[in-house]
Design a binder for these strands. Sequence first.
DNA 1: GGAATAGTGTCTCTAAGACAGTATCTA
DNA 2: TAGATACTGTCTTAGAGACACTATTCC
Lengths: 231, 231
Amino acid sequence: MAKSPTTTNHPAVICTVDVVLLTLQDDALHVVLLPRKAPPFADMPALPGGYIHAQEDKTAWDAAARVLKDKAAIASPYLEQLATYSGAERDPRGWSVSIVYYALVPSEVLALGHEDLMLAPVSRLPKLAFDHKSIIELAVSRVRAKSQYSSLPVYLCSEPITLPRLQAVYEAVLGEPINKVSFRRKMDELGMLEPVEGSMEAGGAHRPAQVYRLRKEFRRELSMVARGINS
Amino acid sequence: MAKSPTTTNHPAVICTVDVVLLTLQDDALHVVLLPRKAPPFADMPALPGGYIHAQEDKTAWDAAARVLKDKAAIASPYLEQLATYSGAERDPRGWSVSIVYYALVPSEVLALGHEDLMLAPVSRLPKLAFDHKSIIELAVSRVRAKSQYSSLPVYLCSEPITLPRLQAVYEAVLGEPINKVSFRRKMDELGMLEPVEGSMEAGGAHRPAQVYRLRKEFRRELSMVARGINS
DNA sequence: GGAATAGTGTCTCTAAGACAGTATCTA
DNA sequence: TAGATACTGTCTTAGAGACACTATTCC
């Protein structure tokens, strides 16, 4: 390997993190955006992001968590690495690396009004800064894929939750109806929900749904089934 | 966003790429390693890797391809991003980012003897520099997972190939036997192989296997099935 | 009781695995 | 012809989806 870049002719690379923060609004996936305050792409909506602070961030994950806390006032969501985007041309300021994370939160914890946070439906994204549009598209396809065989969508829900509500969340994420019997079999198999004594009146004239909460072991941990929710 | 890091107090971050180059040897997954020539971890085996060269590399993918070409004399393998490792403590020289790629090649294209290339079975890794051991473990689990539902293992084979041979490759990667009928159904469903006129004498006293080659459309492209090879 | 949604029992259908049969080569 | 491995037809079995029936609430 070569010497440290500071002692060679390798110019510094711009190192940033960006976060695709997803939530559910009106049963549709939305992404949190923030208008840029400075060039390049001033005033254009962009993913919350920022430079890695080598002094305060122990890892890029910590940097992403800090960005979420500073820019969206959100602590401890489900936060996972998506991919890293890099290249000479994605940022006019120079060769850049963006380590991208994605996070899922229930819309209830979103402090809209904080800063200039805005929500955009992922199916109709506005013009975005940098390559953020394709980043969001990758995040959405990753979330859809993972939702096929895991408990990922529960992180879009606030507890307690009912099975009919959770099924609606899965259907919103996957964009297709799910067989009720199969869905309940899978949720049972995932084994992450435990019933709470007491029921929820869905505000309607009908049988109330059983209320569940996440088992302790599954807080922020993903649970997988062998064959997926459908198929 | 803040100003460019070169005009602030953000110290430069060390930006590198590393490649987990996997191949099959004696029906077992092996990884290509290279002894380090300089500190830190001098003389210890490590993944082929190096700094991003902002002048010559258009993207980190290009940097990974260049590393493979320079250090292992390999051009155009199946090369895909794995994950990015980062942090203050993984490299004693400072805060570092390593964008890690993985590649699959048939053992025939490996020019062992080039440089000090060595091969280690992934099931018995030696002591490795940096956090390269856990990187390799992640790569192996990713390859195993993808092999469940895709054509990934064909990139470990040199063409032409027979179905019995390809099944042995899948079994070596997955570490478990596969049902022959199901396997052939899946390969058919993937639709990436086309028969070549002529047969292969497997060196034995038995019926020769039909020889196949990859369809043009699938060169370096992954093909997926709905439900995986097994289950 | 009627309307509405929650929850469940069970049949069907699809697809994976088991098994055994046929095919084709060498010695 | 015997032995070995390639290939294929078909039965069994497991799991997903469809459907209908029961349960429980409010009006």
